[in-house]
Amino acid sequence: MRIWKDAGHLIRLALLLGMLVVAFLVIRRAVIPEGFGRYGHFRPAALEDVRAHPIHFAGRAACEACHPDVMELKQKGKHAGLSCEACHGPLAKHAEDPEVKPVLPKVVALCSRCHEANSARPKWFPQVNTKEHSGGESCEACHKPHKPKFGE
């Protein structure tokens, strides 16, 4: 076999190439995370990472499960569409453990957040100039937050 006599350099080259290919495959396997490309050009476990974030707002259904009386009162009033946590703040901890007592919101600041007159607010939305409207009196003196309009 004369043809192999001078082929030593070719074999060495082929071996080197083979080693490089193997090294490439090994590194590729080590570097690319599991399942990469299953749903797209990203690591599928990242979806679980985002979903694992803790919940702070319990959601309206959780509130209404224990407070049907408030739900009933609210349903008849102007604030029927509001979620409880829109005013009371995030209460997932309270929903999990009723012993964790929520802090009641400060009424005047809370009401004026939405109902203070503002030229940029849509005209259909009920707004008042708090100082002229109540003269420093707390909103709660006349309006009940869960059923705010008189005679409803």
Binding site: H56, F57, G59, R60, L82, E85, A86, C114, F125
Partner: peptide, 11 residues
Amino acid sequence: LEPACCEACPT
């Protein structure tokens, strides 16, 4: 559950 912003949006 609703997103937090939708949950808190009063209108």
